[in-house]
């Protein structure tokens, strides 16, 4: 996946921010700015951009979670709490759901949304960096990260951190944009995400740059096989992935034994 506008990191201290190359220290701040900017309109934009299909991708993730009453779930980069709301009901009063996000604005929107829905008691809110999770070893039965991994600066460190806090027998589900399976779809998707998406962002959220970053960050994210290899390198076992909507989105699943 290459684009004439994109540049490559020249050293270990550099990383991608969309198609730009920035210092690793800078990226977290820049991503934070993007999400501060879009937090209030995040749900509306998600529905608009995906034509509501993101709800089906998330439902599929929940169906693959195998979550049981009494279990502990970490919804990482949980944003506005779509997955956490459902997990909260599925684990019941004896279970626990931790909604974690590095971005305070997103976490606040998620917390308000869940409380407005009457979801209280078994959900905790933690502002945390996925690269160094502030939880004990072998603590969670399930970790999900939906549309969050591509924004993490050091993905390998984040996967290692997730493995550490996951219980033996637990599973990690990574729902993320990926590489379309067909060339024709890829072209249509490029047209949509580079031309239409920023305009929609400008119109609805008055912010085209954040949605330009969104399109670019999707292209820079590892494809299905690369992410699978990264999860295996981190120590996850039985790693598989399932393409959805022609590979626009993929769900990766890995276990810790």
């Amino acid at each position: 996946m290459s684009d004439p506008g994109q540049s490559q990191p020249q050293s270990d201290d550099q990383t991608h921010f969309g198609f730009k190359t920035v210092g690793k220290q800078q990226k977290a701040t820049m991503v934070a700015e993007v999400f501060h900017s879009v937090a209030a309109k995040y749900d509306v934009m998600n529905d608009l951009m995906s034509m509501g299909i993101h709800r089906l991708w998330k439902r599929f993730t929940i169906d693959c979670s195998g979550v049981r009453p009494g279990q502990k779930v970490l919804d990482l980069a949980g944003g506005t709490g779509d997955l956490a709301a459902k997990f909260s009901r599925l684990v019941g009063k004896d279970g626990q759901v931790v909604l974690a996000d590095i971005n305070n604005a997103m976490l606040r929107v998620g917390r308000d949304k869940l409380r407005d829905k009457g979801i209280l008691g078994n959900v905790d809110y933690v502002q945390a960096n996925a690269e160094c999770l502030p939880f004990p070893d072998n603590h969670f039965d399930l970790i999900t990260i939906a549309f969050g991994l591509r924004n993490v600066t050091d993905k390998d460190a984040a996967l290692a951190s997730m493995l550490r806090v996951l219980k033996p027998g637990g599973r990690l589900l990574v729902l993320e944009f990926s590489k379309p399976e067909f060339d024709a779809l890829s072209k249509v998707y490029d047209l949509y995400s580079f031309h239409l998406l920023p305009k929609m962002g400008k119109l609805v959220a008055n912010d085209s740059e954040s949605y330009q970053y969104l399109a670019e960050s999707i292209r820079m994210h590892p494809d299905q096989e690369t992410l699978k290899a990264m999860m295996e390198n981190a120590g996850f076992e039985q790693v598989t992935y399932h393409n959805m909507t022609g590979g626009i989105v993929a769900l990766h699943r890995g276990f810790k034994f």
Partner: peptide, 10 residues
Amino acid sequence: MPAPQLLTGG
């Protein structure tokens, strides 16, 4: 499109 999820959602 995930058909089972469309049905369960409905």
